[in-house]
């Protein structure tokens, strides 16, 4: 049983999103921090590695669609313990919307072959749509299991998971193969290790192009159904600060409570 973890390289968590007067978007880190593995994906990577360690998966393969630079994210996956990493990169995929990306990922998963579980993070911190896992499941014709907070059991060609929903938890069983997207309650991602970093630096990460895949459906900017018509930074939040004065703490607290009542906060 092979497990694939689909990851994405994103800007760092401290990167600042800016749009200039011409509508050009930049997402740079003021401290110069490099791009990172999408933080949500760290839980997916950890779970893929645990599927190998605890559930008899033969491989935990990291898969990314992106530029050559995304190899850094894949190296992190290898340093954490993934057994293999594959980059899918082609200018034909540039500007794809989530459907286009899902088509590419599905084709890559088919090419890997014998995959029983494809694991995703819940969402990516840049696009923030959370759509790709279910779209990949649709393309593959597999069952999507979203918001997974625990993998309970894998046996007899079935997987049982716990899903964390707004109203509570539910336990569901589905036949393999499945696509799962995980929430952060599922595990505590491990740190990469020195030994893993060394292994990752020695590893060759194959790059698959459009020619290597049988992508079903159109990809790229022209095929995208979603267009970014107008991108702008949200206006800064307005607010004011009032320092409550008083002779004693008790007086200050009384004034504060009155204010909170006045504003109907309490």
């Amino acid at each position: 049983m092979k497990v694939v973890v689909c990851t994405k390289q994103t800007p760092s968590t401290t990167a600042v999103f800016t749009v200039d007067a011409n509508g050009h978007v930049s997402w740079d880190d003021p401290g110069g921090k490099p791009n990172i593995v999408n933080p949500w994906d760290e839980y997916a990577i950890e779970e893929a590695i645990r599927l190998k360690e605890n559930h008899g998966a033969t491989d935990a393969i990291a898969l990314t669609v992106g530029s050559e630079e995304s190899k850094d994210a894949l190296k992190t996956c290898l340093a954490m313990g993934c057994t293999e990493a594959i980059l899918v990169s082609d200018s034909a995929f540039d500007g794809s919307d989530t459907v286009g990306t899902a088509r590419v990922l599905a084709a890559a998963i088919n090419k890997i072959g014998d995959v029983q579980i494809a694991v995703f993070g819940n969402r990516a911190i840049d696009g923030d749509t959370g759509l790709t896992p279910v779209q990949v499941a649709r393309k593959l014709g597999w069952t999507p299991l979203t918001y997974v907070s625990a993998i309970k059991e894998i046996s007899n060609g079935q997987i049982t998971v716990e899903r964390l929903l707004d109203d509570g938890k539910e336990t569901v069983t589905a036949p393999l193969p499945v696509v799962i997207s995980v929430v952060k309650e599922i595990n505590e991602p491990r740190y990469p290790s020195f030994m893993g970093i060394r292994k990752a630096n020695r590893a060759t990460i194959p790059v698959w192009t459009a020619a290597d895949l049988e992508v079903d459906g159109a990809t790229g900017a022209e095929a995208a159904k979603v267009n970014w018509g107008h991108v702008y930074a949200p206006p800064p939040r307005e607010g004011s600060v009032e320092i409550i004065e008083g002779e004693t703490i008790e007086e200050k607290v009384r004034k504060l409570v009155d204010k909170l009542f006045e504003e109907k906060v309490i």
Partner: peptide, 14 residues
């Protein structure tokens, strides 16, 4: 070296 930079990054983050 690249490896040393990655070590530093890892330890720093940890």
């Amino acid at each position: 070296t690249e490896e040393q930079r990655e070590f530093r990054h890892l330890v720093h983050e940890f």
